[in-house]
């Protein structure tokens, strides 16, 4: 069911004139009022928020986005779908950021469960969630953060058979995987489905990130031909540090949001290389 004129009147009735810290005036609506209108009307919180933004009434939860995003941008994000493949170190942070940012539909893909060695860096992992499905924990976390986000949970590993069905229709796909073999599976599926892919990897205090459009050469420029690439890389001996993982994950979220809003510059055919050991950040040209 879509919001009608009566719903828009209700949104306006429950909105408030307010001011940003810099005194810019705005009209806002609270989380509770969004949830109440949704409960009364049977219309999803997401559609209520979109209707609100169309009236230039800003849901309070997004108000700190509003000097960077327009109301239209925020509505575009709410109408978007992103697939996050891998819900470990990178994926947990990406999930948190995208839920808070207000991406409308998040497809979450991971067949794994949490183990103790995840606690150092995987934001979704807590002591009482050891042995819990990562996708289940991610869904629960999103629901706690933002009731406007629709979650499609896949507690399974991505493979050649299920990939097309999962990523189809995504406005962006984010590679948060931990093996090179699986990364190539995801890239093949993304290219085939015409989806744009953000891919990042970490080891110790080192990380890199790139953005791949379907027509781009992609991962083979980084890892060589898939048939000769190893399954794992330097992370096997270096592990991964929380502050490096979360930094690189933030960059992945940023790329995906720029893809959807069609603004800023993307890391297409480029690799942003980060080494926190000496604070080096450099964008390399892959072709």
């Amino acid at each position: 069911m879509k919001p009608d004129v009566d719903i828009k009147i209700r949104i306006r009735e429950l909105s408030n004139r307010k001011k940003l810290p810099d005194k810019t005036p705005y009209t806002g609506i609270s989380v509770n009022n969004i949830i109440n209108i949704s409960g009364d009307s049977g219309i999803s919180c997401r559609d209520i928020e979109i209707a609100s933004l169309e009236e230039e009434i800003i849901p309070e939860r997004y108000i700190r986005n509003m000097k960077s995003f327009s109301a239209n941008d925020q509505a575009t994000l709410l109408k978007s779908m992103i697939t996050i493949v891998g819900l470990g170190g990178l994926g947990g942070v990406v999930t948190e950021i995208l839920a808070r940012t207000g991406i409308g539909i998040l497809n979450l893909v991971d067949g794994d469960v949490f183990e103790e060695s995840n606690l150092n860096r995987q934001f979704l992992c807590t002591e009482n969630l050891i042995s819990t499905q990562k996708a289940e924990a991610a869904e629960k976390r999103i629901k706690e953060i933002n009731s406007s986000v629709t979650v499609r949970k896949y507690s399974e590993y991505l493979n050649e058979e299920n990939a097309a069905g999962i990523i189809g229709g995504s406005d962006a796909v984010i590679d948060c995987l931990d093996s090179l073999t699986a990364r190539f599976v995801l890239e093949r599926a993304s290219k085939k489905a015409g989806r744009r892919l953000v891919s990042a990897a970490v080891a110790g205090s080192y990380g890199h990130i790139t953005t791949i459009f379907p027509e781009d050469p992609g991962l083979k420029l980084i890892y060589g031909d898939p048939e000769n690439a190893p399954n794992k890389g330097a992370e096997t001996s270096l592990g991964a540090l929380s502050y490096c993982v979360s930094l690189v994950a933030s960059l992945e979220a940023s790329e995906a949001i720029k893809i959807i809003l069609k603004n800023g510059s993307l890391l297409r055919n480029k690799l942003l290389v980060i080494d926190l050991a000496d604070n080096s950040f450099e964008t390399m040209h892959l072709s």
């Binding site: 990897a201 080891a203 890892y223 190893p230 330097a234 992370e235 592990g239 991964a240 993982v245 390399m284």
Partner: peptide, 23 residues
Amino acid sequence: KGELDSTLNGGERIGIFPPVGGG
């Protein structure tokens, strides 16, 4: 991006990376 066969004449900055796949 360079290759193993790329030649160096001095003055270049070279970065060399192993495969990295952690997430």
